[in-house]
Simulated assay, not measured.
Amino acid sequence: MQLRHVLAAGAITLLAGPALALQAAQPQPHPNQAPMSASTTSSTSGEAPSFDDLDKNHKGSLGRSDIPKDVDALKQLRAHFGEADADHNGRLSPAEYNTYVAAKPPGAGQH
């Protein structure tokens, strides 16, 4: 009976050894590296990025060219930019952007 336990333990060790070695060989993030945010990990996420994420030049407003083409949640905003631009100055203020994004149900830009 003890021989069976020893053989079973040996078999498990032999089978698990390569799996553990593969897991240890996978690259680990650097301890000082910040985790990736949702906006950098998936460009087609169903959630719209914040105004500040899009205002990369810190101008305080967004032009149509500042709205990424590859973010599903913003495809409708790109298509209807003029409707979101309530004061028709060709730029979206944080209030205009947030109003438009809040009014659209999640996934409205997805097909």
Rank of each mutant, 00 (worst) to 15 (best):
66 D>P: 01
34 A>G: 00
21 A>V: 12
70 D>C: 04
15 L>C: 10
80 H>C: 12
7 L>A: 12
53 D>H: 01
2 Q>S: 14
111 H>G: 13
50 S>Q: 05
84 A>S: 04
100 Y>M: 02
50 S>K: 05
84 A>T: 05
11 A>I: 13
25 A>Q: 02
15 L>P: 06
1 M>S: 08
51 F>A: 02
31 P>Y: 02
23 Q>M: 10
21 A>F: 07
102 A>C: 04
111 H>Y: 03
73 A>C: 08
84 A>I: 03
105 P>T: 06
6 V>K: 12
67 I>T: 01
24 A>P: 00
5 H>E: 15
111 H>W: 01
9 A>P: 10
93 S>V: 09
84 A>Q: 05
12 I>R: 09
30 H>Q: 09
31 P>H: 01
87 D>M: 01
26 Q>L: 15
55 D>M: 02
69 K>N: 14
107 G>Q: 00
43 S>M: 12
79 A>C: 04
82 G>I: 03
87 D>L: 02
47 E>N: 13
59 K>S: 09
26 Q>E: 09
42 S>Y: 07
85 D>S: 02
27 P>D: 05
79 A>L: 10
108 A>N: 00
68 P>G: 05
48 A>T: 04
61 S>W: 14
108 A>G: 02
39 S>I: 11
46 G>L: 13
72 D>Y: 10
29 P>W: 00
60 G>E: 07
6 V>E: 14
78 R>D: 09
72 D>G: 12
39 S>E: 15
98 N>S: 10
54 L>H: 07
51 F>C: 03
28 Q>N: 03
72 D>T: 14
29 P>I: 02
78 R>V: 11
87 D>C: 01
99 T>N: 10
88 H>F: 05
4 R>T: 13
6 V>A: 15
98 N>L: 04
11 A>T: 10
85 D>M: 03
62 L>P: 06
104 K>C: 13
2 Q>G: 15
91 R>T: 10
22 L>A: 11
33 Q>T: 03
70 D>M: 06
16 A>W: 09
64 R>E: 09
28 Q>K: 09
17 G>P: 01
11 A>P: 08
69 K>W: 06
60 G>S: 04
107 G>E: 05
23 Q>R: 10
94 P>C: 11
92 L>C: 11
14 L>H: 06
31 P>W: 06
7 L>P: 13
18 P>R: 03
106 P>V: 00
64 R>M: 07
10 G>P: 14
40 T>G: 15
36 M>G: 12
95 A>K: 14
26 Q>Y: 08
12 I>F: 14
89 N>Q: 01
28 Q>V: 11
103 A>R: 09
4 R>M: 14
86 A>H: 08
82 G>M: 03
10 G>R: 11
20 L>Y: 10
76 Q>V: 13
107 G>A: 02
21 A>N: 02
94 P>I: 09
101 V>D: 04
111 H>R: 06
45 S>Y: 07
22 L>W: 06
104 K>Y: 06
109 G>T: 00
111 H>D: 09
42 S>Q: 12
111 H>C: 03
68 P>Q: 07
28 Q>M: 08
103 A>M: 07
11 A>D: 06
75 K>C: 08
16 A>M: 10
